[in-house]
Simulated assay, not measured.
Amino acid sequence: MASITGFGGIFLRTDDPKTLYQWYEQHLGLVKSEAGSFSFPAPTQHPEVVFSFFKQDNAYFPPAQKAMINLQVDDLDGVLDRLIEEGVTVDPKRESYDFGKFGWLTDPAGNRIELWQPITAE
């Protein structure tokens, strides 16, 4: 039977795509592909990708924001500390669970972004 094998992409609307691409390149180190978008080779990420729904009034991320990006990182504190030094809006709250550590930032378009450092199998 044909089936879904994973995510193919994340798509956000913005008034100024060029500026947002530049911000993500500068602060998050993402590199645009020849196709003009960011891509991640699958072997670099934790084998689990979460797809979840939230009620319209759930406060986990701003209700006016219809979707939130969750990016996997290898050193949450290192990435967030660097972003603070670069003047990026970073939520001071950081949380740890048995499945990983989480932190948040906001891009110039006002999108809240979640960073996740998964627990690695030793």
Results as ranks from 00 to 15, higher is better:
R13F: 07
M68H: 01
D77W: 01
E25R: 12
T120K: 15
L80H: 01
V31C: 00
D57R: 02
G29R: 03
E86Q: 14
V49T: 15
L20G: 02
G78D: 06
K18S: 13
A109G: 08
L28C: 02
H46T: 10
S39N: 10
I4D: 03
T14D: 00
Q117W: 02
R82Q: 13
N58F: 09
F38L: 11
N111K: 08
D107P: 01
K66F: 02
G8Q: 11
D16M: 05
D74T: 14
Q56F: 10
Y24G: 06
L76T: 01
E114G: 11
S39I: 08
V90E: 08
E122S: 15
A42R: 15
W104I: 06
F61K: 05
S39H: 11
E95D: 11
W23T: 07
K32H: 00
L115P: 08
D57C: 03
T120Y: 14
Q56D: 12
L28Y: 01
I119E: 14
K55R: 09
V88G: 07
A35D: 14
D74R: 12
R112V: 09
G87V: 02
E25W: 00
K101R: 15
G87T: 01
F53P: 00
R94P: 06
K32V: 01
I4N: 08
P63V: 01
A67C: 09
D57V: 00
E114L: 15
V79C: 05
A67E: 08
E85V: 07
P43V: 07
G6I: 05
G8N: 12
P118I: 03
I4S: 11
D15Q: 11
Q72D: 09
H27Q: 08
I84Q: 11
S39Y: 08
A59R: 13
Q22L: 13
A109V: 04
V73M: 06
K55Y: 07
A64I: 07
G100P: 02
Q72N: 12
P118H: 00
A121K: 14
G9N: 07
